[in-house]
Design a binder for these strands. Sequence first.
DNA 1: CGTTGGAGTATTGTCGACAATAGTCTGGGG
DNA 2: CCCCAGACTATTGTCGACAATACTCCAACG
Lengths: 226, 226
Amino acid sequence: MLAATSQSQTRADEAFDCLQTAIVKGDLAPGEKIGEVELCERFNLTRGPLREALGRLESRGLLVRKPHAGVKVVSVSGDELLELYHIRESMEGLAARQAAERMTDAEIADLQATLDSHEKMIDLAQGQAYYQGEGDYDFHYRIAKGSRNTKLAQMLLGDLYYMVRMYRYRLSTSAGRPQKALGEHRHIVEAIAQRDGELAQFLMQRHISAARRNIEQKIKAGVLNL
Amino acid sequence: MLAATSQSQTRADEAFDCLQTAIVKGDLAPGEKIGEVELCERFNLTRGPLREALGRLESRGLLVRKPHAGVKVVSVSGDELLELYHIRESMEGLAARQAAERMTDAEIADLQATLDSHEKMIDLAQGQAYYQGEGDYDFHYRIAKGSRNTKLAQMLLGDLYYMVRMYRYRLSTSAGRPQKALGEHRHIVEAIAQRDGELAQFLMQRHISAARRNIEQKIKAGVLNL
DNA sequence: CGTTGGAGTATTGTCGACAATAGTCTGGGG
DNA sequence: CCCCAGACTATTGTCGACAATACTCCAACG
């Protein structure tokens, strides 16, 4: 039934949330052409709010719309996915640097506690679940928020992450990578705790760069079907 | 009368363009609360397409909307404007590096020709018009496109520039800065022509950093009313 | 005199019907 | 047998009216 994830204030917001999660979860496959009426009965909406949500999704780059021809879910090629990681490398590097300068001590302690819980998650899932779940997302989410840079957080959390998460669902993480990623996360937090912005930026960039090369290998190996 | 800038394919697109230019040009002042019906008669639209455009503008961060309370133009503080330049520093640095690797020779030649015309513009306006006009925008626009990074270009051109341009209209450039900016532009293009991505990135970051400090000084001096 | 409650109004959110356009399918011609 | 033209259908774009919510103003009470 897939009801609205959170009690939305308005129908259009509800539609927006539904569509967004449906796209991210893969219920609406990339490249799939979708009709408005079909979506309406699927989510129990009328076309008014739906169209409003559609416009917002298009503006965020999750949909492409051709006038009088319909909308279809954006399909991102392997190259484009790698480009996304290049952008993340730059932007999250900045976020890490600013977070090191601006996060409160309480926030940093909280972040460290979060990593502890992530470690337990990895142990439980025997090293398979870090990237699949929300753990990695949590970490980067907190850094973005910690930068105190409203627009930066908005662009990272509102634009980039949704596109990245679209593909995280089908990215089977390579064995051993979660532990390594967690270790990198720890180093980044350490740099932040020491208020070493430059180091935090460097480590974050290298962290994302490693993730990108990891995906690059998979693409070359033909593991990914993009 | 402020008709649609370009022959839009649909009413909603038309509304979107009108609203966007109105906000950027300052016809709709930041912080101003605007009613839907007022906008309708102002742009000869009905509320359907208008609401669709409103949603898109909100998603791009140019408007804030409170349910059942109306929309108002986003007002960005001095600090937030400086944060925008921090983001540009990161993202356009990346764009310059990728442009150096990927622009065609023809595009580079074209870019150099553009700078020549900019030089004439500055001479004509006696050093006052570079930042005011579209010249600077042209330069950064071409670099973003030249990066061949679709999402990067979309984020720079679709999100950041419109917010920056909102304030360029009231930023009286300091004397001498246009010439210096043009010189920096030339150095960047030179690095791109030599396919030196790292240098291009460095120069672009320093270029934007200089612009940021320029604004920072003005804010401290109380010249800007934010 | 200040505050709080309520009714009224104005604005936003939603809906269903109408108009316009694009894609498709069929029939005729070369 | 293949190609082109025309109308048809289905989908999108647009519009006006209705419903729901928030802001405002006024009056009564403490």
